[in-house]
Computed example of a mutant assay.
Amino acid sequence: MQKKEILIDENHRETTLHGSYEFPMAVYVDQLDKNALGFVNWHWHDEIQFSLVTKGDMEFCVNQKTYVLKAGQGIFINSGCLHRSKPVSTPDSTFICLDVAVKMLSFFQGSAIEQKYVKPYLKLEGFSAVTLDDQVEWQKIILTKIKEVYRLYTQKNYGYELDICILLAAVWRQLISKQDELKADTNANEPINQQRIKTIMSYIQTHYMEKMTLQEIAAIVHISKGECCRFFKRTVKCTVFDYIANCRINKSIELLRTTDLTVSEIAGFVGFGSTSYYIERFKRQVSCTPREYRVQHVNLPIVQ
């Protein structure tokens, strides 16, 4: 199924329940032009993620690295890693996404498998993301298993849960067996940088309704304004203030869908200084006006 807009908390942690308590994993098919922003915005979650591009070219940003993948290629994203995905050229670029709770790999809490083969790899340096290419034999095996998990999850025949667990264990076994050769491209500052970005995003998520200055944002992570600008743009691929505007647009979309507030009221509520600027930013990002978006997506009375 298509994943709806990602719900995140004040720490940019995704709050979506993937699957159920009894079977904590889910499979999605994400067509990016069906997302309001046209891409999947920055977020993180405790689940590990496997993605396989099925149409178009896509850019995945994980922590401070960018990976451009074409149809047939995939990526593993580790637990707790900030990531974003967007189309490179084709707006309706599409990918299969598997979000898997870590406990599905452990069999039971405290098991030898958890202690030896799961926990040590969740925070392993150089293991935030691994690209998967069907031209590399061991990676092709993983991609084939991702497709099979998708088929089983979609068809839901008798025993599909058991079959999926077996496949996921095999995928994880294949992946961690290659971790030594994946350590070559590492960044010793990655954990520090990750925490800085999460702190900044958390602050913006909490204070988006207020006027924010670069000085106060830089101060919360104890760096200069100049370094804050450079560091943020290098990592998140946009300026701090573009990110704030995108955050406000996201919040306004929730209000357009769920309330009968006027466009002007929503603009003020989410922190835009003027209604005209809000409409301009909204149209630039979503390719329609707030009023048009409301007509297309909700059955509320049209308010001026």
Rank of each mutant, 00 (worst) to 15 (best):
S264K: 15
M1A: 12
A188P: 09
R284A: 12
N246L: 14
K103P: 06
C228L: 11
P91R: 01
D33F: 07
Q304M: 13
E227R: 13
D99N: 14
Q73S: 07
S224N: 08
G19E: 05
I75R: 05
F39N: 06
L69I: 03
S89W: 02
I6Q: 12
K86Y: 01
Y67M: 01
I8F: 10
K55Q: 11
C229L: 15
S111A: 12
F127M: 14
F76S: 05
I223L: 02
V68I: 15
T206I: 06
S79I: 03
M201H: 09
N250C: 15
C288A: 09
E265I: 03
A188H: 13
D163L: 13
C247N: 13
H83N: 08
G126L: 04
L162N: 15
T154A: 11
H207G: 08
Q179L: 03
C81P: 03
V236K: 06
Q109N: 10
L17V: 15
A169T: 11
M58S: 09
K198N: 10
I96C: 09
E254Y: 14
D242A: 14
A184K: 15
Q195E: 15
H222C: 07
S85A: 15
K251W: 06
N250R: 15
K86L: 03
L261Q: 11
E47G: 04
P91T: 02
W172Y: 08
R151K: 15
G80E: 03
R84M: 12
T258L: 11
T15A: 10
L122E: 02
S89P: 00
R281N: 12
I249Y: 01
I266D: 03
N189P: 01
C247G: 04
K233Y: 09
A169M: 13
Y67A: 02
E10R: 15
S106I: 00
D185C: 08
Q205M: 13
Y121N: 07
T213F: 10
V102I: 10
M104R: 08
D163S: 14
I146M: 05
C229S: 15
N35I: 10
N78P: 00
C247A: 14
V263W: 00
F60L: 15
H207F: 05
E47L: 05
V40Q: 06
R294A: 02
T54W: 05
F282V: 02
E227K: 14
C247D: 07
L122R: 07
C238R: 13
R173A: 13
I166T: 11
S252N: 01
G72K: 11
Y21D: 14
S79H: 04
T90S: 12
G159V: 00
V303A: 04
L143C: 10
K198A: 12
I48C: 08
K198T: 07
G126S: 07
L132P: 01
K65Q: 14
A170D: 13
Y203G: 01
F107G: 05
H222K: 14
G271L: 06
H207L: 02
Y28M: 08
L37T: 08
F231A: 12
P91Y: 03
E137D: 06
P91N: 04
H18Q: 01
T144G: 15
A267H: 00
L105K: 10
M209W: 00
C238V: 09
D57P: 00
K4R: 13
N246G: 11
K283Q: 12
S274P: 01
S89L: 14
S93E: 07
G80W: 05
Q215Y: 08
L143V: 08
C81A: 11
A188D: 14
Y121V: 10
I302G: 01
M58F: 08
K283G: 02
G38N: 02
T94P: 04
P301I: 07
